[in-house]
Nucleic acid binder design. Structure first.
Length: 290
DNA sequence: CTTACATCCTGATTGC
DNA sequence: TGCAATCAGGATGTAA
């Protein structure tokens, strides 16, 4: 579920609230994520200081003293929340979060908790368990299997028209699938692919290799516009996404096409359509997008 | 190599 | 109302 803007929003908030804190306790209560969380992880992070919180693609990277990073991927349904403590709360194991987050995040799916030296906690929650938690040495991070094949960040200069044109050349798959391929460009998922292609005026099912140069240029220009606007609103909550304080993102009301099947296009009033492209719902305006 | 598809898992929603 | 089918923001492994 979380795409680049959601992970970036969590990164910014987490950075402000946890950098400089030391992890005093850690536990993984459900290691069965998409890949099993290493049993040694919890023990290995205790006593370390949080030096920084970074992001690459949809991965959150929590840098620790001692030269390692906790790499987190939220999969489809993961959230990371930072919960202020109140004395005595979950020591009794009451199950309910003590800090007003109940009803927003179901604690039944809290799978990992880091307790910090100010008494607050960082909680990883993921009902579908498609996520990833892994401790990786910093000096091997870029070469790790998770990060090594990722394409450029869509907010970086490396993602330009010449690059995308080269990657699209002779490719027969739909342009929407191409820009959702993390090896091509990193961080775009189903919601933002739809929004970027709307802004660019290109139909999601168009074959990548058949796009004109001007269309490629419009896609490359649209991507940072859409992503930055979404980051500014702390991401999109379509269903369950919450930021690190448990709040929904504010971009849902700004979505131009995603989830709007049958509703009028804001630009031309034509009903938005939804076609399956590569097994994923793909919303577009049949008049504004060609 | 490229592309299509099933799969992991739970929960919310839709349809009968 | 109840139950089954369908779908969900992701990524990967397999097969064609």
């Amino acid at each position: 579920m979380p795409e680049l803007p959601e992970v970036e929003s969590i990164r910014r908030m987490l950075k402000r609230s946890v950098v400089g804190r030391t992890i005093v306790a850690a536990k993984v209560t459900e290691p069965r994520l998409r890949r099993r969380v290493a049993p040694a992880l919890a023990r290995a992070v205790v006593g370390r200081r949080i030096e920084g919180v970074g992001r690459r693609a949809k991965y959150l990277i929590v840098r620790l003293s001692g030269g390692d990073a906790i790499v987190v991927h939220l999969g489809m349904s993961g959230t990371i929340t930072h919960r202020e403590s109140r004395a005595g709360i979950d020591r009794a194991g009451s199950g309910n979060p003590p800090d007003g987050l109940s009803g927003q995040v179901d604690s039944a799916h809290d799978h990992a908790v880091l307790e910090l030296d100010d008494g607050s906690r960082i909680v990883y929650n993921d009902p579908r368990r498609f996520g990833l938690l892994k401790l990786i040495p910093l000096d091997g991070l870029a070469a790790s299997e998770e990060l090594r094949a990722l394409g450029p960040e869509p907010l970086s200069r490396a993602f330009d028209a010449a690059y995308l044109a080269e990657k699209a050349r002779a490719r027969r798959l739909a342009i929407k699938n191409l820009i959702m391929d993390q090896r091509i460009v990193a961080g775009i998922g189903n919601i933002y692919a739809a929004e970027i292609l709307f802004r660019a005026g290109v139909r999601p099912a168009r074959r990548a290799g058949g796009l004109k140069r001007a269309e490629i240029e419009r896609i490359v220009a649209a991507a940072p516009c859409v992503l930055k606007e979404a980051i500014g609103r702390r991401g999109t909550t379509f269903r369950s996404y919450r930021d690190s304080r448990g709040r929904p993102g504010g971009f849902a009301g700004r979505l131009r096409v995603y989830g709007r099947e049958g509703e009028p296009c804001y630009r031309c009033s034509t009903p938005i359509r939804n076609l399956m492209v590569g097994q994923r719902a793909s919303f577009f305006c049949p008049r504004c997008q060609r």
